[in-house]
């Protein structure tokens, strides 16, 4: 069974090392095709060429949510099955998830400037993503402030799961709050139904972003395994050091 095979970090390092160049290549090709299609996509009749921002904004928004979902699965792996790589996967995914969330926020804000006339409006979707970003930063802060990886891993796993339960509630609350404060008069991003000439490049870009994430995630997981190895070795060395009675 591959999952059991992968439980061995040494075997994981070997397998992921073989896989990584292929993934990186596939990601590059998908990105190149996606960018080409996005460059040739027609302008939106309402939003003009700014619709091109959507090709990076929407895939990063999807990824921002999907990565939290993946971290929740890894959290279950940590708490229920105690899979040795689960908290490595969760930790490695956190900064990448935060980065895609930041891309989503920045591109949304840059799209908002010509559309809304201001860089930031408390639009329901942007606000939900902002809170998601804060939660990513919180989990990162947690990982950074505790040096024992298994202790931090279990706490982060619980926090991730509680966050996953709360995210739909937050989304619902923010939507409700938004309709209370500003009736739907603003131009909504990606509001109207999407035409195939835009949908195809969008999906290719989404595929490219997923491949980029998988590549970076595998590489970051490898780094994390090596980091833990270094930590163990340093502790062994410190224990064996002479002159400490």
């Amino acid at each position: 069974m591959p999952l059991i095979d992968l439980a061995n970090p040494t075997r994981f390092l070997k397998l992921s090392g073989l896989l990584l160049p292929w993934l990186a290549g596939a990601a590059t090709i998908a990105l190149a095709v996606g960018l080409y299609l996005a460059g040739n996509a027609p302008d939106d009749y309402q939003q003009g060429a700014t619709v091109k921002i959507m090709f990076i904004h929407v895939p990063s928004a999807w990824l921002a949510m999907a990565i939290w979902g993946m971290m929740s699965l890894a959290a279950l792996g940590t708490l229920v099955w105690r899979h040795p790589l689960a908290d490595v996967a969760a930790k490695a995914a956190t900064p990448i998830g935060a980065a895609f969330t930041l891309i989503c926020l920045l591109t949304g804000s840059l799209w908002g400037r010509p559309m809304w006339g201001t860089y930031w409006v408390w639009d329901a979707r942007l606000t939900s993503v902002l809170i998601l970003f804060l939660m990513y930063l919180g989990v990162m802060a947690l990982w950074r402030s505790v040096d024992d990886p298994s202790r931090a891993g279990r706490a982060a796993a619980i926090l991730t799961l509680v966050g996953a339960i709360n995210l739909p509630i937050i989304k619902f609350s923010v939507d409700w709050w938004n309709t209370l404060h500003q009736p739907a008069s603003v131009v909504r991003i990606a509001g109207p139904a999407i035409h195939p000439t835009i949908l195809v490049p969008l999906l290719v870009m989404a595929l490219a972003f997923v491949l980029i994430f998988v590549t970076l995630h595998l590489a970051a997981m490898r780094n994390e395994i090596l980091r833990r190895r270094v930590r163990t070795l340093m502790m062994i060395e410190a224990q064996a050091a002479p002159g400490r009675g």
Binding site: A49, T50, I53, I56, H57, I103, L106, T107
Partner: peptide, 18 residues
């Protein structure tokens, strides 16, 4: 590359940020 219209700066900035 096709012309990016009046808001080219914002489109380029968005791609640049990414």
């Amino acid at each position: 590359m096709a012309s990016l219209g009046p808001h080219a700066t914002f489109i380029v900035a968005a791609y640049g940020a990414a």
